[in-house]
Write a protein that binds this DNA or RNA. Structure first.
Lengths: 156, 156
DNA sequence: TATGAAAACCAACCCGA
DNA sequence: TCGGGTTGGTTTTCATA
């Protein structure tokens, strides 16, 4: 089976439990989990592979405290884009290294960007570039003073 | 050594390379990596442990396509909070299951929330709760039509 | 579709340098 | 602080139910 678009996928109890554990700690051993869950390691391995194939699992990653690495500055940037170029703009902005999220929204602005920078200068350069972009009509930037919570995990 | 607050931590080439690989795929085996990098598995294991102890690595998790699980709705909610209660508000909102990020910001609003919901009804309930909260003075909600990019990883 | 068993692979620990 | 070596744990495959 290959990835299947936007259709909702139903997980059974095993899939669900496995996914919850992988969200908590993606380096957990399937064997140990299989003992807790009273299924075979092979089954968990099959379920894991299946969820990756279906696209429910997009990958396994590491949560990093970026402030400890000198990325002390985050910003939330709302952008009003010239309508015709919206998709094109989103595509190009998604490739920027600093950008962690790009959301299509409705309202006064069209796109919301979440970005991380090493310094105020880097942010400044980024914003000036953005305003030079002819697809951009207007921006509103909220400087993040502090990330109180930043965790991509949702209770499933 | 224990975690050491906000001080910036310098990573050498090995740490850096290891962290980049773990960001790309946290389930990678240290042994295979050690061959590519021409260092011993024990060294990588030591470096990994060190980065966890220092708090550079906050954990290992799984990137999930929540739309495939029925969380089709995201929202960006800007909140103006009664100043005295800001910290208290942030603490209580951080514990909500739907909230993936809480940012302290400067400007017209004080806090920006990124939240995920299963349905418009769930969002509606959440927003009504928020407005009933006496610490909240005003909110502005942007409904996310589409998450063009959502990846917590930054190029380090 | 799940499993047990086996082979290949891997992490974790200790100790010597 | 690093890395070799050992021990015991882990993934992955496949034949079978």
């Amino acid at each position: 089976m290959t990835t299947n678009g936007k259709r909702k996928i139903d997980l059974d109890t095993i899939d669900r439990r496995l996914l919850i554990e992988l969200l908590r700690d993606s380096r957990v051993s399937l064997r140990r989990l299989s003992e807790e869950m009273n299924v075979s390691p092979a089954t968990l391995h099959n379920r894991l592979t299946k969820m990756v194939q279906e696209g429910v699992i997009r990958g396994f990653t590491t949560l990093v405290d970026y402030t400890k690495l000198g990325y002390s500055l985050s910003a939330i940037i709302m952008v009003k884009v010239n309508g015709k170029y919206l998709v094109e703009f989103e595509k190009e902005i998604s490739n920027a290294d600093n950008i962690v999220a790009v959301y299509d929204v409705v309202g006064e602005y069209d796109v919301v960007l979440i970005a991380k920078f090493r310094s105020v200068e880097d942010l400044d350069v980024f914003l000036k570039q953005l305003l030079k972009n002819s697809k951009v009509e207007r921006t509103y930037t909220s400087i993040v003073l502090n990330s109180v919570k930043e965790d991509p995990r949702v209770r499933i």
